[in-house]
Amino acid sequence: MNAPYVVALHAVTKVYAGQVHALRGVDLTVAGGELLAIVGPSGSGKSTMLHMIGTLDRPTSGTVRIDGYDIAELSDRELSALRGRTLGFVFQQFHLAPGVSALDNVAEGLLYTGIPRRERRERAAAALERVGLGHRLAHRPHQLSGGEQQRVAVARAVAGDPPLLLADEPTGNLDSGAGAEVLGVLRDLHASGTTIAIITHDVEIADWCPRQVRVRDGRIVADHGDGAGRPAEITKGTGSGPPAEITEEARPDGRTEITTKGGRA
């Protein structure tokens, strides 16, 4: 059986060469089915935290448990398998292969799961359908809008149905309309049970999420909301406004219990 938490960070620090303390003791737990935002100013350590959660890098100290596995005990091969099965990533730059169709870009996301090619393509088509791009299977990245490209990237991340989706500034390169498209897709995925962590420095996107984890100087300074709640409604910006207009009335129930605070021994 899995541990109750999909993500459990305990006293995690990360020191980069040159004595940069990117994380200074982070405790964070995320249960299955949550939708949370990790929000903070530039340089506060958000991406570093995502690398820890995503097992792309190891902490300097502290423990990282993902889906019940203590990653300190896993080899590089086992970490790779864990990433392939448990984690899906969406990056600010979409990282799509140029000149390759949306379908094949998404199918490539399943390459390392051991699924046969034909089934990879079937699942890729289904994933593209899920993000509303069922009519764009043969389009190559340069034939797609930014929002569509990011939705292809989301489809690639979720094609294998990973229990945990990590998105680092998924709307950072998009205008408000396209950003709203992508958030809509994330909301639908959350509704169908996927645990999602969105990294952002955009307070409005953070407020849209039912749970917000605020980071500053490598520490968690606030943790509000119930990640299992439903996100707010999204209305498409008119182009000049903020990335996504968040409406107040649909905010989650307002439980603001702070479960974790960074920086404490």
Partner: peptide, 16 residues
């Protein structure tokens, strides 16, 4: 390098 990073995030091992 970015493609390599992406493949690693998708679950590719060093060997792959």
């Amino acid at each position: 390098r970015r493609e390599i990073g992406l493949r690693r995030s998708l679950g590719a091992t060093r060997g792959q």
